[in-house]
Design a protein around this nucleic acid. Structure first.
Lengths: 189, 189
DNA sequence: GTCTATAGAGAGATAGAC
DNA sequence: GTCTATCTCTCTATAGAC
């Protein structure tokens, strides 16, 4: 029967809460500093716990990163592909999730991040490729993805003035012709 | 016969030669590994010298990076802006200089690199902005630059299959409509 | 469930010898 | 002009106490 009586928060509950706090702090740190400049100590401090506990829960810095940078693969909305891609760009311009920013910031310097990125990107790319009605669909999918990534990096990570200050609507409007020429339903020559 | 008397290479010459070897090794290392994973020791070894010598010549890792990642600001060829941008993208698709890749690889994680990047990018952006015949020229310049950067990163740094394997010509052809809509000489609404 | 203590490795930087 | 030796710092990771 009862043990600690009032199970308003069981021990397992408490454990999950703490893990979530740590993951949140880790996501933010990885997004702002990148993999190498993020220290277990700093993550622990931000989560209000001790560094040893972080290791105890996640095993290594590498595993902590993989957990923190885990992103649900972006779904491509149904309908005309160019418009679908634009609407997903639109939402990412407004608020890109921290986990995704963490992955982006670290992808150029941390080998593990590149792998995570490739894995989560593969499904996305093939989905986009299938939606594009052209022979060279793969290259086109790679190009729109490169464009989206480039814009997101400049806006959220590098905060380059022109892109960081612009309204999401203006950006989308300016890029519409690009997306239509790459992913639109033209007749293939 | 003579030994050190033959000034086929003076001491100052020798010094410059060695410095150049070090800079070359540094560029390659920074481009491949990023700022944080590049060690003075490894650069020295690759250049066939000792780590102490690198410090002696360049003072600090930070200064070594700044020297190694120094890039002549890309000149925008004269003529119609969209075509000018495409032709410069074209050349960067074939072989991007190591110094530029080093800067790109490090820009997301190293503060000093971001500054160097911003500085060398500012001149470029204003030049592109001036060439674009639109009111919102700055935003348009930021967008084409983001596109170029995204494509170069995916091709040369992440080596994502679709972009890494494609021919430069195919990429340029697919992106031409994008560049024309962003930087072309349309009548402004 | 959480924290303390510390081992162990690697890096940048400095001073001076050859 | 170039190298050896070393100092000092910081970080991950481990072992075990409360």
């Amino acid at each position: 029967m009862s043990e600690s009586s009032k199970p308003s928060r069981t021990r397992a509950q408490q454990r999950l809460d703490t893990q979530e706090r740590i993951l949140g702090a880790a996501r933010q740190a990885f997004a702002e500093l990148g993999y190498e400049h993020t220290t277990i100590r700093a993550v622990a401090a931000a989560a209000g716990v001790n560094a040893g506990l972080v290791m105890h829960y996640f095993g290594s810095k590498e595993q902590l990163f993989t957990r923190a940078a885990q992103i649900e693969t972006h779904e491509l909305p149904p309908g005309e592909p160019a418009e679908a891609l634009l609407s997903m760009l639109r939402s990412r311009l407004d608020d890109e999730p921290a986990a995704s920013l963490a992955l982006l910031r670290s992808v150029l310097t941390h080998a593990g991040a590149s792998d995570d990125f490739r894995d989560s990107g593969r499904a996305w790319l093939s989905r986009v490729g299938e939606a594009i009605p052209h022979q060279d669909a793969d290259l086109r999918a790679g190009l729109v993805t490169a464009i989206i990534t480039g814009v997101i990096i400049d806006r959220h990570l590098l905060k380059l003035s022109a892109l960081a200050d612009a309204s999401a609507d203006d950006i989308v409007e300016l890029l519409r012709p690009c997306f239509e020429s790459l992913a639109g339903e033209h007749t293939t020559p």
